[in-house]
Design a protein around this nucleic acid. Sequence first.
DNA 1: ATAACATATTAGAAATACCTAATGTGATTA
DNA 2: TAATCACATTAGGTATTTCTAATATGTTAT
Lengths: 106, 106
Amino acid sequence: MLKVDMDTKVKFLHGFSHKTRIQILECIKNNEKTVTQIIEDIRSSQSSISQHLACLKGCGLVVGRQEGKYVYYSLRNQKVRELLTMFDDVLEDVENDVACCENHIS
Amino acid sequence: MLKVDMDTKVKFLHGFSHKTRIQILECIKNNEKTVTQIIEDIRSSQSSISQHLACLKGCGLVVGRQEGKYVYYSLRNQKVRELLTMFDDVLEDVENDVACCENHIS
DNA sequence: ATAACATATTAGAAATACCTAATGTGATTA
DNA sequence: TAATCACATTAGGTATTTCTAATATGTTAT
């Protein structure tokens, strides 16, 4: 197991730190989708979705492939998919305690 | 597999969205530590560490137990530990691409 | 009881992230 | 080639998060 650079890890995990981004990840978890499809699925603006997709790409979580005028986004690889599954797994356990806490850091 | 509430998931994942919090999690990954020990390990102020610990507790990632005047913090459970390990695992794969991306969403 | 230690909390300033609105770019269709 | 469609980018206002500095709380030792 190689040592992973901390700043890289911070950047990577930043990808999961916003509701819209999490929704995007779940939305494309099982099959790739175009930006338009993602916009339809998630209730948010084109610009916002596009910016979050750029973020997710930068974080290394998703990849996009262009096909004609469409861009198809999908999870980067199987491991990212497993990670998303694992979140649900861990959360089943944690759910009750998290639910009753209302504040972030401040 | 139960369905996990989205807002709960967002709150949970928020725990991983700051360098100091990630450092704390790694710092206590293998054994519980007092706040003072954590402060010594991570270069940050007492107040900041304490606030981040409260955040992590609220996110359901860590638990604290008081013993005399000390409070020992540790990961909530084995699954959270596995999650941290999995981050490293996924990152080995992603590292190069993340490293060459400099911006967050903006 | 007083002092010292460990930790938590608060308030407000500073930094960062996010959204909206507008514009830009590249591909396809007419 | 002009128009349209799909998507990306930018700028700047707004909201949220984080840090610092100060103070509070609870525990142990003197």
